[in-house]
């Protein structure tokens, strides 16, 4: 496959709910075989966009092409979708649910079952196959849901907030799953409001805020387009950064800080001012974080993270 075939193409799509404009003239292109992140704060329009892509709701304006089709309905079997709100039939066993989801996607019953068992074993749930979902722990239930999304080996997987509510072990499982999909040549789109997760995984990203696209493109390009900043790992009192001359903005997280300088200020002078006042473990000049890019793009509006 070549990167110029598109798994998904959205052209100036708008969706209104009454007077509220949830998605406003949004356009984007997702190349096949990539991992694409929809980033933005809660309520930015990520879920609405995804629902429109899945043909669960329909845009008021604009068009969507998914896997070359104008409508997801005709190719539902080639899509995998994990909605933001996740649930299982309480009275069905894990393998029954996987088989059912597989069959709904057009697999035959026997194949769906054997593939389901295979996946459960692979992700450490072999013993839970015959257990009813109401008896599974929360984490196990989430894994079953995720496996249900991919059991039919879809060409395009759309995951809405896949990491929310997962413990670190399951975050790892989720990441492994996304990466293995990419290795198999599948396309993965996921949404998140947690920037570092996207930075670790995505080939492409789109930042949305209040229904409008802020910026999109390959992750590297998006980042290099912004001003470089100084990344500092440190121990000590972070308030000293404010006293340093020539600093424009500081993103201080306590042990790590990102500092952006006014034009023409030499990073070396900053280092000199800091030496002796805090203990510095790392100091380098590099591309800005997605967080910084986002904050700058929306003009310093507060986003929740």
């Amino acid at each position: 496959m070549t990167s110029n075939t598109l798994a998904l193409e959205i052209n100036s799509v708008t969706k209104r709910f009454g007077k509220h404009v949830a998605v406003d003239g949004l356009s984007l292109q997702v190349p096949e075989g990539s991992i694409y992140g929809f980033l933005g704060p809660n309520g930015a329009g990520k879920t609405t966009t995804i629902r429109m892509v899945m043909s669960i709701i329909y845009p008021d304006d604009g068009s969507i092409r998914i896997l070359g089709q104008p409508n997801a309905e005709s190719i539902k079997d080639e899509l995998g979708y994990l909605p933001e709100e996740k649930g299982l039939y309480k009275k069905m066993t894990a393998i029954e649910i996987l088989t059912y989801f597989g069959r709904l996607k057009g697999m035959n019953g026997r194949h769906a079952k054997s593939r389901g068992l295979e996946l459960l074993k692979q992700y450490g749930l072999g013993d839970a196959a015959e257990k009813k979902c109401e008896t599974l722990s929360k984490g196990m239930g989430q894994k079953v849901q995720i496996l249900g999304t991919v059991i039919h080996d879809p060409r395009l997987v759309i995951l809405d907030e896949p990491f929310s509510g997962l413990d670190p072990v399951n975050v790892e499982v989720m990441r492994e799953l996304i990466l293995s999909m990419k290795r198999d040549g599948r396309t993965v789109i996921f949404s998140t409001h947690i920037m570092p997760q996207a930075e670790q995984l995505c080939d492409f990203i789109m930042l949305v805020n209040r229904g409008k696209k802020v910026i999109d493109g390959p992750l590297g390009e998006v980042r290099s387009a912004g001003d470089h900043g100084i990344q500092i790992d440190y121990d000590g009192d972070g308030s000293v950064f404010k006293e340093v001359a020539g600093v424009e903005r500081i993103n201080d997280s306590g042990k790590h800080a990102e500092i952006f300088l006014e034009k023409g200020v030499d990073p070396q002078t900053v280092l000199q001012q800091l030496v002796g006042r805090i203990s510095i473990r790392r100091f380098d000049l590099r591309e800005p974080s997605l967080h910084e890019i986002f904050v700058r793009a929306v003009g310093g509006e507060v986003i929740d993270e």
Partner: peptide
């Protein structure tokens, strides 16, 4: 209330 609708709707109309 089990939040199953959307999953189902991604497979069936």
């Amino acid at each position: 209330s089990n939040r199953l609708m959307e999953v189902l709707l991604s497979s069936v109309s």
